[in-house]
Computed example of a mutant assay.
Amino acid sequence: MYICICKKVTDGQIRKAVQEQEITNMRGLRVKLGACDQCGKCAVEAKQLMRQCLHEKAASDHNPRRAA
């Protein structure tokens, strides 16, 4: 699903960026993906998704069995 329509950034791209490129803040999303730097209407949803991914990543880092 598209999160940032202006820059054609999907939820999958954001998830991958958080997991693989270790994006931890909105500035990182803007720099790496270009998300949320044009009209800004997607910023709230992008931030929520990023936080959810960070929470999931932290949970899997603390419980290696769960990540498998």
Rank of each mutant, 00 (worst) to 15 (best):
A68W: 15
I3S: 00
M1L: 09
R66D: 05
D61R: 15
C36F: 01
Q21E: 15
P64Q: 08
A67D: 14
A17V: 02
H62E: 15
K57I: 04
A43D: 08
A35E: 04
T10K: 06
L54M: 11
E22R: 09
S60L: 03
H62M: 14
K8D: 13
K16F: 07
K57H: 05
V18P: 00
V31R: 03
I23Y: 01
M50T: 09
C39A: 07
E45K: 12
I3T: 07
V31L: 10
I14A: 00
Q38Y: 14
T24G: 09
H55T: 07
D61M: 06
I3R: 01
Y2T: 06
N63C: 13
G28W: 00
D11W: 06
Q48E: 13
A58E: 10
A59K: 15
D61E: 15
K47C: 07
Q19S: 10
D37S: 05
R65D: 12
Q52I: 06
V9Q: 02
S60A: 05
H62G: 12
A43S: 07
C53R: 09
K7C: 12
K57D: 01
C4N: 05
E22T: 07
C6D: 13
I14M: 01
Q13Y: 04
M1T: 15
A58L: 08
Q19M: 12
K8E: 13
A68R: 11
C42N: 02
K8R: 15
A67G: 13
A35R: 02
Q38W: 13
Y2N: 10
R15N: 06
T10I: 04
R51T: 13
D11K: 13
Y2R: 12
E56C: 11
A68G: 13
R27G: 03
G40L: 07
G12H: 06
M50N: 06
L54R: 02
E56R: 12
L54D: 00
L33H: 06
V18K: 00
R51Y: 03
E45G: 09
A68I: 10
E22F: 00
K7Y: 10
V44W: 08
E56A: 04
I3K: 01
V31C: 04
A58S: 14
E45F: 11
I5C: 10
R15D: 01
P64H: 10
Q38I: 15
Y2D: 15
K32R: 13
M26Q: 00
M50H: 08
N63I: 05
V9A: 04
E20R: 13
S60N: 04
A43I: 04
V31Y: 05
L29E: 01
N63Q: 09
K47A: 05
A17L: 06
C39F: 08
